[in-house]
Design a protein around this nucleic acid. Structure first.
Lengths: 346, 346
DNA sequence: TTATTTTGCGATATCGTTTGTGCAATTGAG
DNA sequence: CTCAATTGCACAAACGATATCGCAAAATAA
């Protein structure tokens, strides 16, 4: 069985390529092609197991039925979850998704964007790396681009992110309301999405008249970094009574350090995490955390993208979605509980 | 800036499309095109930011520089890790990867395979769903397919999987050697990769003359299923002293149930898990587990795939890689410790 | 019967590349 | 100065689909 094309089928059925094409792409009716002609052709198509060349079709129509998704690392469960959601949403629109991994490098990101452009994707969703939007902005004038999870300052590119500032604020306020005063925050990386969380933390501490205590080490979200920073915090003179871990991996490191210091959560030290993860429901105690609305973000990003693909949406949309609080037991305090009933109900 | 093509550049530089094409695709030298001609063309290419149409190129050359990866669910961290590894390996070979998600449905899998075929991918790596290899086998005669993680019985398709039987055997033997005799095994799903693990468990129990105790519930790897099964096991008359969780999510559920029964790991009940996951190093105690060699699997799968793409490899390769044991503290026993020194050193 | 409409389908150009063939102009040899 | 070899480039045919015309034959109307 060699390669099948429209013309091999045309030859065998005795009709022209034109007619065969029309039948196969479902336009038989609008071209007054009678049922039995169509049936003869479809029978042959099935018999020889013909699959149209999507590539030739794209070349001709300049529609590829494809969107691109560029992200820093598929192996990272957080991005993987986003990828899953985007793929599902796009599929629901009849599109499929090419996923490209930049390994967190701006150079790769730009190469990926070019590759997708060359492959005629009809739009792309990008979780950007680096802080220079210029290439993406240039591409955006040719095909719609929507950023996700991260955005650039001072760029007109559309984006959908979590309101990270709000998350930082919300989390810190919860800890304060729970009676903590010495609250440390472990940052992990310095750049865009996290720095907003830190701002939220800062403002919450300020508004309560409390002293900030921010740990930055390395420039990554590693569990090891969380471990080291926590160990340092715990051995300080007036150690904090609560730690706000700005990512789920930092949380893991923090938990390990706390265990090694033989402290109990939350009695000796309270914990709050950014990001949600299955295991957090299964730890002792259940971790209180700020969950980013991944599903909604993906849905909206795809929706905006298709709005622009179909030209029903022209203006740039910049959206920040509110994170939500998942209340566990890890954030409470035993030092000076304030309004515990309110907290429970949260 | 409208759409740039070879011919717009040809027009502006005064050369022919042919020459422009040769310069751009790096074949200037072999066609005796002088340096300054090449330079003039490249300058113009840069100036107008031209990106070749990969689609047209593929159509012409029937090479797409693309492989496909079909998997059950990108959102699942286990598959996401595989995806990351495959993408990285393919990239190292100069190829890029289209990732398609089947949502664990055979029908989707087949559609995905067709789509990729139509997109002219040069090969595909598939983590199959269902138990009917016929479509994939048919496609395999047109373009190379390599299965990963799961395989079909009685199919000639190439595959690279973990030796799940060995994993089951190894894990169970470890528990036996650690002095356990009442060892339960929680299966989760019934199909291919896991059923092999169960066989290993069975054989190990038999060879030690111990009684099997296999829990199957639902047909999924859910934490909830692990929770229910464990709760059941723990409340039975002669409850097991060790539980072998055949996936990392089952492990989570098991841990929750154990905690609720106020039992200590490993003193009251020992735990062993299949699959590796960051959090397992951060639990109390550290979880002993059977790790699948994901990286190696991905490397080999890609290597085999390219062997077939480049035609240096013609026979079908069916590989089962040995899993490895990561020794934590969760598998030990306090009931009747046997050769503890040997265990420690493991 | 003739004019008109409808039915059923086909030729051909085109999308943006690559590539085999070919041919003038230049250079070098004799 | 003549002839061959080399240099520098272009023409045109694919690749496999779609889309714009268009046209003969059959059906219907007048």
């Amino acid at each position: 069985m060699n390669k099948e094309t429209l013309s091999t089928i045309a030859k065998r059925t005795g009709y022209s390529v034109t007619t065969v094409s029309r039948v196969i792409s479902g336009n038989a009716a609008s071209h007054r092609i009678p049922e039995n002609t169509a049936k003869a052709i479809m029978d042959e198509v099935k018999r020889c197991n013909y699959t149209p060349s999507a590539i030739a079709k794209s070349l001709r129509t300049s529609k590829s039925g494809t969107i691109g998704l560029i992200l820093p690392s598929v192996a990272n469960p957080y991005f993987a979850e986003i990828a899953g959601a985007v793929i599902a949403e796009a599929k629901a629109k009849g599109y499929f998704t090419i996923v490209l991994d930049t390994m967190e490098q701006k150079k790769n990101m730009e190469e990926c964007a070019r590759i997708l452009y060359g492959r005629q994707v009809e739009g792309m969703i990008v979780i950007p790396s680096g802080d220079d939007p210029s290439l993406l902005e240039r591409l955006d004038s040719h095909l719609p681009i929507v950023l996700m999870d991260r955005s650039y300052d001072y760029s007109t590119l559309s984006y959908v992110t979590t309101n990270n500032y709000e998350g930082g604020l919300m989390g810190t306020r919860l800890l304060i309301k729970s009676g903590h005063t010495r609250i440390a925050c472990i940052q992990g990386e310095k750049e865009m999405p996290v720095s907003e969380r830190v701002k939220g933390y800062r403002d919450a501490m300020r508004e309560a008249g409390l002293e900030e205590n921010i740990s930055i080490s390395g420039n990554e979200f590693s569990a090891h970094c969380g471990y080291l920073e926590t160990a340092l915090l715990l051995s300080s003179e007036d150690r904090p009574t609560a730690i706000f871990a700005l990512s789920s991996t930092i949380l893991l490191g923090a938990m390990k350090a706390i265990k090694e210091h033989q402290l109990m959560i939350p009695d000796d030290i309270a914990l709050l995490s950014f990001d949600d993860n299955l295991y957090m429901d299964y730890t002792t105690p259940v971790i209180t955390r700020i969950r980013q609305p991944l599903e909604d973000m993906a849905k909206l990003a795809v929706k905006i993208l298709f709005g622009r693909i179909e030209n029903t949406l022209t203006a740039s949309s910049q959206l920040r979605l509110s994170p939500s609080l998942i209340t566990g037991e890890s954030h409470k305090t035993c030092h000076s509980p304030t309004e515990p009933s309110v907290l429970q109900g949260n």
